[in-house]
Amino acid sequence: EPLWIRPDAPSRCTWQLGRPASESPHHHTAPAKSPKILPDILKKIGDTPMVRINKIGKKFGLKCELLAKCEFFNAGGSVKDRISLRMIEDAERDGTLKPGDTIIEPTSGNTGIGLALAAAVRGYRCIIVMPEKMSSEKVDVLRALGAEIVRTPTNARFDSPESHVGVAWRLKNEIPNSHILDQYRNASNPLAHYDTTADEILQQCDGKLDMLVASVGTGGTITGIARKLKEKCPGCRIIGVDPEGSILAEPEELNQTEQTTYEVEGIGYDFIPTVLDRTVVDKWFKSNDEEAFTFARMLIAQEGLLCGGSAGSTVAVAVKAAQELQEGQRCVVILPDSVRNYMTKFLSDRWMLQKGFLKEEDLTEKKPWWWHLRVQELGLSAPLTVLPTITCGHTIEILREKGFDQAPVVDEAGVILGMVTLGNMLSSLLAGKVQPSDQVGKVIYKQFKQIRLTDTLGRLSHILEMDHFALVVHEQIQYHSTGKSSQRQMVFGVVTAIDLLNFVAAQERDQK
């Protein structure tokens, strides 16, 4: 057995438009009618409502009807409940999964919650491996369901041993009777949507819809739904939504950006999952974080739909894509998950301010006199920076000697690579993860907040409520011999709460 199987392995699926269902090699399930009293909570997966979006479509000038398939009504709160249950049931049916076995899954959280929910009911041990950027709410729900959680670096490539995929496979090879159901490759993922989600949409719309818009992560949702719609409703256009920084969209030119990270969760990847059939997507749109969270908040405030950030991405694209539809036509959007997962993220004004998705003037509360002053007023001194090749031991000596707790790590040209902190280095040394002679590049981390000289002290204040420091950066445009230009970030300084307090105190003292 291989040590790991690539999540982007070539698909062996034989589905073709027009091929009889009787030739399918898979076990198919028909939607079942729910009894009045459910035998367990797993029976509350599927049969989610279709809700008309009344205000947002009109606000953006849509002539067509805009409908939302509300997947956050599933038992675990997301569309991923469907595939989690289906993968477990299919693994039980073919004898792969037996009582007492362990389920391991690399996930952005929602599939993990679905699997942990099913594992709690069915009696399996469950280990979820997820990147650090995923919300604390997801972690809390997983723990409450009895799952064990392993976190991995957000910026690790999918084929790196440190990625959530790599760590999951390492655990599988170490733990007896453990299984990775593997949402990236498992046919049960798109089949769950082909058999149930798509049929529900067709039934709820009486077979009449002209466009379907869905955000894409593993691709199982859009693949399964689109294949069924292509068979039953061939005139329906399928629109895929991919965040900026991901590479799922086609044509490839759409993916060209210097951005590699994004805040919206559960969609987009740096590889093409095996289950994603991009041939059934008629057109791709890219979405960005700001519009995703703005539209998610709009869905909550104006439509009462308590959905997550990827739902915002989907609707932001839908109001663009559906401009081509006329009166009497219908566009369906998939709202994948609930706001429950993001209470401390985009639902929080403070978080939105820190990330730059909300401006101070958007909030009406009274601010102190210094709130709208610029960061450049602080008069920061030149920063202490270190090269990635310097040793951890030497870096600790320098920081202690100069009285700093942290320093930016830059390359020879001064471009920011990340940050090192005294606390992080000492804990890594004590844990045996690094040696004093190791290069400081081994303990770089990139989960820090950046701020510009033109940003306000109010925004800085919000950042420092949650973080010990902020890195002050400025952009530099560099022209190359080819005539092309590129933008790079340079370090201007490091600012802490002490710097802000000293500035405010000094100004008030001078005024007296």
Rank of each mutant, 00 (worst) to 15 (best):
V472Y: 01
N424T: 05
V434M: 13
G441A: 12
V319G: 05
L378T: 01
V375S: 08
Y479W: 01
Q323P: 01
I463V: 12
F469Q: 12
I300P: 06
E377I: 09
Y479S: 11
A407C: 12
L453I: 13
Q323N: 07
Q326M: 15
V504N: 12
E303I: 01
Q354L: 10
I451E: 01
N255D: 03
G418W: 05
I477V: 10
D455R: 01
A311T: 12
G441F: 11
H394P: 11
E252L: 12
S313I: 08
T389S: 08
V280Y: 13
Q302P: 03
N424V: 12
A322G: 07
P336V: 03
G423L: 08
T260C: 09
E324G: 08
K283M: 09
K433L: 11
T391A: 08
I239Y: 08
P436I: 13
M466L: 11
A505C: 01
T294D: 04
E508T: 01
S486K: 14
E360I: 14
Y342D: 04
R452G: 10
V504F: 12
T385F: 08
E365G: 11
T389C: 01
G356T: 07
Q435S: 11
Q302S: 12
E265W: 04
Q259A: 01
T385V: 05
Q323R: 13
L422F: 11
Q487C: 10
E360H: 03
T294G: 15
A318D: 01
Q435E: 15
D282F: 12
F357T: 05
I444W: 13
Q478C: 13
F295L: 09
L299F: 01
V472E: 11
P408Y: 01
K484S: 14
F285N: 07
T482H: 01
F285S: 10
S348A: 13
V317C: 09
V332C: 12
M352G: 01
F404I: 15
F346G: 01
M466W: 14
V264H: 04
S313D: 06
V332P: 05
T482R: 13
L248N: 03
Y269D: 01
A296S: 08
R374T: 09
S287K: 11
E327S: 01
G393V: 14
V281G: 04
A321G: 12
K367Y: 08
L430V: 09
P368T: 04
T274A: 01
T261A: 04
D438K: 15
A301V: 13
R400C: 13
Q323F: 12
C392L: 11
A318G: 12
H474K: 05
L335H: 01
S481I: 10
V280M: 09
Q439S: 07
C307V: 01
L335R: 01
S428C: 13
K484D: 03
L426D: 05
E324L: 06
I451A: 01
S348Y: 05
V491C: 13
Q329L: 09
L453Y: 06
V264W: 01
V375P: 01
L325D: 01
Q478E: 07
D277P: 04
E397Y: 06
L387W: 14
T456K: 12
D270F: 04
L453A: 06
A431H: 01
A321H: 14
V504K: 10
K359L: 09
D455L: 09
V410W: 07
Q478N: 13
Q329W: 03
K366Q: 15
K402Y: 06
D349C: 07
L373E: 13
L254N: 10
K484V: 12
D510V: 13
I300N: 01
M490P: 14
P436C: 13
L358W: 05
K446A: 01
T391W: 01
L429A: 01
D362K: 13
V281A: 08
